[in-house]
């Protein structure tokens, strides 16, 4: 029983009617890993501040819990499919593309999308130029058309590397850019937000706007990949 005692921390008989229940009770003694719960880590400073301000606003009657929840729900409802529709129309309708390049906010209002205070600046990928967007200081991102930014966009490694070795970073996304093509990085850190119109792939001639929208992915509108016809 010496081995058994070592494993369990105590000596007992596993046989009998309660053996299963007992095994469950002591399951933590075995080499099992559990996925961490969200609350397992201590909240960070700004998280605590957020909770405190939220409670104060509610307590003082400035906002209701329901209003806050609705606002969060609204933010979550902003999805890259919005941007995809805009890009698909730009591919489909050259006049719309010109409007979009001239004034993103004006053109996106056709889809009922409001960028708020941010100025949506639209960049077009062509045979000669490939655009890619980053915010080196934080995580500025065109949320009104793409929703919340992915983790890789906010990561320090993407933010630090894409400005100094964009071609290597793009390669890691599976995107090889020819030497003759100019790579333009856009560091978005003020009042502008950037949306990339990727290159329309070959083989999409005669497609409807809806079908075109189906191949425009989030990452292609940040500029790290080119859409493809699978």
């Amino acid at each position: 029983m010496a081995d058994e005692e070592e494993k369990h921390g105590h000596n007992h008989d596993h046989k009998g009617i309660d053996a299963d229940a007992h095994a469950l009770e002591h399951i933590h003694d075995h080499d099992r890993q559990f996925q961490a719960d969200i609350e397992d880590n201590e909240p960070e400073h700004y998280e605590l501040m957020t909770y405190a301000i939220k409670e104060l606003l509610v307590e003082k009657g400035h906002l209701s819990v329901d209003e806050i929840r609705r606002a969060q729900e609204k933010l979550d409802s902003w999805q890259p499919s919005r941007g995809a529709k805009i890009v698909a129309r730009a591919w489909f309708d050259p006049d719309y593309k010109q409007r979009l390049l001239k004034d993103g906010n004006e053109a996106m209002s056709d889809f009922g999308v409001d960028a708020g205070g941010a100025k949506l600046t639209v960049l077009e990928n062509t045979e000669d130029v490939h655009n890619v967007v980053v915010c080196t200081l934080c995580s500025c991102y065109p949320r009104s058309v793409l929703g919340l930014p992915p983790d890789w966009y906010r990561s320090k490694s993407y933010r630090a590397r894409v400005v100094i070795e964009p071609r290597e970073v793009l390669k890691e996304f599976g995107t090889d850019i020819d030497d003759e093509v100019t790579v333009r990085v856009h560091d978005s850190l003020a009042d502008l937000r950037y949306l990339v119109i990727p290159k329309r792939p070959k083989g999409t001639e005669g497609w409807s706007e809806d079908k075109l929208a189906s191949i425009v992915t989030r990452d292609s509108m940040v500029g790290v990949v080119n859409p493809s016809v699978s």
């Binding site: 400005v163 100094i164 070795e165 071609r167 030497d179 100019t182 790579v183 990085v185 009042d191 502008l192």
Partner: peptide
Amino acid sequence: ELWDHYSGSKGDTIDIDIY
């Protein structure tokens, strides 16, 4: 202009929003 050992193409650029 920004990096001494930039390994990409000569024409590559970065656009930055500056006040």
